[in-house]
Design a protein around this nucleic acid. Structure first.
Length: 407
RNA sequence: CAGGGUAUGGCGCAGUUGGUAGCGCGCGACAUUCGGGAUGUCGAGGUCGCGGGUUCAAGUCCCGCUACCCUGACCA
């Protein structure tokens, strides 16, 4: 991508309504644009990061045999009334809207009901099970207070996966596979060493759920961990009774804050029962489908990575999610001409700063945007037929022969 | 939702005792520059969140509203 052709411009100062690190930097660097509290647009660079994260998630979920779909945001109240979840008393974060001909619709805060309802049409025998379906979709939640940039929005991108089984054993089997996939996902996006599977309240349908918490100062959850992080618990289940189950007590645990980037549940019959998702087993008996659901807050994940990897100069994207791998700067007539040649054919991995601007500004922007490698070609570097490559994370510079630049 | 705070050119800010707005960045033109957001000259751009009120006169005082931020609560 050529910087001269994008409509984005970086800002020296963050708007004063963006105080969170992720919101301030992502806005300054031109990744996101705020529409209103908790509602953001993703600009070309931001969308690329989002897509990179999505692709990592997609790869790992496909690997464990789940299928991607895309469901609607508009919801039919009748369906949700069957589980009692359309009531504002039961679920107090609904956005509701009206049909012009009369009648209410909801904007989906999650998708258990429509997913079960959709799947019902295709499931009748044990031979149809198991399977798992997921989507990347914008969720709408009427939060009382949106905050912290894209960490907690009213409209946000979520990956939600649902699995369907003939037995609890099979549900457990798949649940473990998801745990493995999640571990790989967080590892790949660069949060592997600070994200922990955490025990949290499972609500009324299971003893625990698992949350994936990334240790982060601005995280909203309070979590407790032991010496080697082998046991991490959300504050909501950090009590003597629960600890006893793990043969532990409160001593030896330290407190910190985390951002919930994922959450997985064994739903069992919570939705399949009221919505009538049944199957016929080998003995011709009618049984209820076992379910699990597994979420990842994709846009929040992007915000968490931005928070985690940043310094006083700006963002520092891990290569796996960076919008571009290289930030190319040509200096002087020869340097510029050579940069043009280098750029050609690599438009997808190079962000070419071909603007008529001074190098200082270009360098500052490359750092603000957090592109992993800055490549500079100038008279000086051309003397040795090389380019200067500087790592954003390390700050280290080295001369690399042009012929070996991308090897 | 409770408490606190803020609303003035695209962004960040200033505006004294009420007398129809000023700075930095950014933007346009020209010139000199050109490996760390350069310098100079000229120029465009706001009627001060919205609605009412007081007054000869309101960004500035009064009333109401809205939006946004922070802390907490909430988070199915």
């Amino acid at each position: 991508m050529r910087l001269s052709q994008t409509f984005i411009k970086t800002l020296r100062e963050a708007p004063k309504d963006e105080t969170a690190v992720n919101g301030a930097l992502l806005t300054r660097a031109g990744y996101i644009h705020k529409e209103m509290a908790g509602v953001y647009d993703f600009l070309p660079l931001g969308l690329r990061v989002l897509e990179n994260i999505k692709n990592i998630i997609r790869e790992e979920l496909n690997k464990i045999g789940s299928e991607e779909v895309l469901m609607s945001a508009l919801q039919n109240p009748e369906l949700w009334e069957r589980t009692g979840r359309f009531s504002d008393q039961e679920v107090d974060i609904w956005f509701k809207t009206e049909l012009s001909a009369g009648g209410v619709l909801g904007l989906a805060p999650t998708h258990e009901e429509p997913m079960v309802n959709m799947v019902k049409k295709y499931v009748s025998s044990y031979k149809d099970l198991p399977f798992a379906v997921y989507q990347f979709q914008n969720k709408f939640r009427n939060e009382l207070r949106a905050k912290s940039g894209i960490l907690r929005g009213r409209e946000f991108l979520m990956k939600d996966l649902y699995s369907f089984h003939t037995s609890e054993e099979d549900l457990d089997r798949f649940y473990a596979e998801v745990e493995g996939a999640y571990e790989r996902i967080f590892e790949r996006v660069g949060l592997g060493d600070c994200t922990y599977e955490t025990f949290a309240s499972g609500g009324i349908f299971s003893k625990f759920s698992h949350e994936y918490q990334t240790i982060l100062p601005v995280g909203e959850d309070t979590i407790y961990y032991n010496d080697d992080y082998s046991l991490v618990l959300n504050k909501e289940v950090f009590n003597d009774e629960v600890l006893a189950e793990f043969g532990a007590d409160k001593s030896g645990f330290a407190e910190t804050t985390g951002a919930e980037v994922g959450n997985i549940f064994k739903l069992m019959f919570k939705y399949s029962e009221p919505l009538g998702l049944k199957f016929t087993d080998e003995d011709n008996a009618t049984q209820t489908v076992y379910m699990g659901c597994y979420g990842i807050g994709v846009s929040r994940l992007m915000g968490v990575i931005a928070e985690k990897y940043a310094d006083d100069k700006g963002l520092i994207w891990p290569e796996t999610v960076a919008p571009f791998k290289y930030y190319l700067v040509g200096i002087g007539e020869k340097g510029l001409a050579r940069a043009e040649e280098v750029y050609r054919g690599r438009e997808e991995e190079i962000l070419f700063d071909d603007r008529d601007a001074r190098v200082g500004e270009k360098f500052a922007d490359s750092e603000l945007m957090g592109i992993p490698y800055r490549v500079v070609i100038s008279d000086k570097t051309l003397e040795s037929d090389s380019a200067e490559v500087t790592g954003r994370l390390t700050g280290q510079t080295s001369l690399v022969k042009l012929a070996e630049l991308f090897k």
